[in-house]
Amino acid sequence: MDTGSASKSAIWLKHFIICLIAFVMLYPVLWLVGSSFKPANMIFSEIWFWPRQWNFHNYVSGWFGFQGSSFSRFLQNSALVSLGAVLGNVITCSMAAYAFARLNFRFKALGFALMLMTIMLPLHVTLIPRYILFNSLGWVNTFAPLILPKWMATDGFFIFLTVQFIRGLPKELDEAATIDGCGPVQIFSRIIIPLALPALITTMIFTFMWTWDDFFSQLIFLSDIGKYTVPLGLRLFLDSSSQSDWGPMFAMSVLSLVPCFILFITLQKYFVEGIATSGLKG
């Protein structure tokens, strides 16, 4: 936008700084990727990330290392859970957020305070009551306890996030639409949703990542190896009471980053191409 006015050397300096910070930040990740190609006893004794020889053994034994099921099973399960969670969160959290941001109703302040309070209570103390609840519903050892709560907008984080976004949109848009005869449902679907797209994309990315990463609730609610997800599969390589397979664990860790990585690359465009409010403002 203002590159024309800046001198060339300033641009180069900028790039150089960004690259330098990026390399420092990325080094640990490079080390992780490099280590996944090293034999186990090299992982702990080497600090330089580039493997002296490339060894794909970790990937092979990580992928096929489980009798009966390969790592692809865990990836599939994680994908199912994560996608279910993403869909649920995007739909129900944006709905709730719209109500909190734009509609007038009784007990709004109380509802909002309650919503914030659900974020503040640590997970560990509600886990057992939740387990008892889901167990009495017969949902333990299914994906339901991991997906269905997201369809009930239980992630206050995303409601709050989207509320803040919607409140950043000029209200004149709604008013204009009301004059054109639109009700709240149309305003929500035609104006708010497209304009809050960056917030929805953010919700998507975060929900996917956090579900993909989540160890504790998946551990508690899933028992069957066939239903295990990626975080549970990764821990199968580690047993601190005896021997751990660090090599395959690193390899599969790297592999399981790929879906998140691809998702991020695909979706991050929308931060640039997200619909500028200007087009709709007039």
């Binding site: 709730a96 709004k108 659900t118 886990l127 239980t154």
Partner: peptide
């Protein structure tokens, strides 16, 4: 209309969240 938009959240609050809290 607010109830309509909030219904999933309310259900979750009543069924899943308030009890454990």
């Amino acid at each position: 209309i607010a109830l309509l938009f909030l219904s999933p959240w309310l259900l979750g609050l009543v069924c899943l969240t308030l009890g454990p809290m």
